[in-house]
Simulated assay, not measured.
Amino acid sequence: MLNISNIHHVAIICSDYSVSKKFYTEILGLKIISEIYRAERDSYKLDLEIGNTQIELFSFPNTPPRPSRPEAQGLRHLAFATDNIELAVETLTRFGISVEAVRIDEITGKRFTFFADPDNLPLELYEK
């Protein structure tokens, strides 16, 4: 047995570092843990805190776009827990971010919705 206790981090590669950094820090409100520029790779690595987990935001030159949304093989979407889905949707909308209609999970009865980051990575808000 591996004795896995939680998710340590999720890594995201973005196409425009400054736009994505602003999105994740100023709009989503994630706290910066560290920011490093790696000259040998022409790459930024931004570590962001979200609860007990981290998001690693990377920039690399000439990365290919995501093949499709959201049903490509691999990571389907990243979901964020929220206490107040209406307030979260209102905040995203104020920043000009398009948010799908809020739906109810037919299994859990919880409310959720989807939106996208600057690179069209599908993100979900899921009410606790």
Rank of each mutant, 00 (worst) to 15 (best):
R94I: 08
E56R: 05
G51K: 03
E71P: 12
V89I: 05
N120H: 08
D119K: 09
K22L: 10
K128P: 09
P118R: 01
T93E: 07
K31M: 13
E71K: 13
S98D: 05
H77K: 10
I104Y: 02
P65V: 09
T25S: 10
V89T: 10
F60Y: 09
M1S: 13
R38M: 15
I27G: 04
I104W: 02
P118L: 01
K45M: 15
E124I: 01
T53E: 00
H8C: 14
R69A: 11
K22G: 04
D83E: 12
A11V: 11
E100F: 03
Y17N: 09
P65G: 06
E90F: 04
E100N: 13
G29L: 08
E71A: 12
V19L: 12
I107M: 12
R111G: 14
L87R: 07
E40M: 12
N52Y: 02
I33C: 07
I4K: 03
P122I: 02
I107Y: 05
T82M: 06
T63V: 14
G29M: 06
S98M: 04
A88I: 12
A79R: 10
H9A: 09
P61M: 11
G109P: 09
L87E: 15
S43Q: 11
P122D: 00
E90H: 04
C14R: 00
T63I: 13
